[in-house]
Amino acid sequence: MSSFARVAVLISGGGTNLQAIIDRLAEGELPHVELALVASSRKNAGGLDRAERAGIKHVYIGKENFEQDLIKLLDEHEIDIIVLAGFLKILSSDFVSRYPDRIINVHPSLIPSFCGDGFYGLRVHEAALSYGVKVTGATVHFVNEVTDGGKIIAQRAVDVKDGDTPEILQRRVMEEAEWKLLPAAVEKVAAEIVARRG
């Protein structure tokens, strides 16, 4: 049996979380992970360039029949784990229910704070600053039919500092939490999948 879990990363933008996974892989920190596919919902996403530089199979999937085309690709590449890394498309309940405990998302807050419909990107950090919290962070969780409602895999707290703007806070949360948590969570889930295979 394979000692790897095959991973697909779904992106829509620059791919900084994808890069964190690529870097940890290169450093040998993800022994059960095989990064088999990067798929983007946007044609010019910077993450596709990152995948190309790393020698990873990468594709852009157009809006029409997006989920059907994605399912076909996932099947073709025998994907075990789907990672949403700055992926801005909402997946349907039908799609999500096909992959129970196999879709992972990283969210830039400590769920259940500042999450759910409409909370993504800078909006999360704007809300945290406007509320006046002193600590925020990131959460990696399984995806289910409820936006940001799946079981939590890992969390890491990040201090909010005087003078933070949403952009400054976003960068700190990425550097101190997202880029560390996500690769580690992918490895944890991959190791569990490999162990279950016996």
Results as ranks from 00 to 15, higher is better:
L91W: 13
H58P: 06
P183M: 05
P183Q: 04
W179E: 11
D75Q: 13
A195Y: 08
Y60C: 12
G116S: 06
G150N: 00
L169G: 05
L84G: 03
G137C: 05
K63G: 14
G62F: 07
N65F: 03
G121K: 08
E64M: 07
D80K: 03
D162Q: 09
L122M: 03
L122D: 03
Y120T: 06
D162G: 14
Q19F: 02
A5N: 14
A191D: 06
G132N: 01
V140M: 08
R24Y: 10
T147S: 12
R196I: 08
A154L: 14
A127R: 15
D117E: 14
L25S: 13
D23L: 05
A45L: 10
I103W: 14
L73Q: 09
A195I: 04
S3V: 14
I168C: 07
A36E: 08
Y99I: 10
D94H: 10
S3K: 13
A185S: 15
S130K: 15
Y131M: 12
T16E: 09
T147M: 13
V194G: 12
A39K: 02
E192V: 08
K180C: 08
V146D: 14
S130M: 13
A36F: 03
D75M: 09
M1F: 05
G13R: 15
V33S: 05
F119R: 00
V7Q: 04
N65K: 12
A51V: 07
I71H: 11
T16A: 14
R6E: 00
N44C: 00
L182S: 10
V143W: 05
I22F: 08
F142L: 04
L181C: 02
E67S: 00
L129P: 03
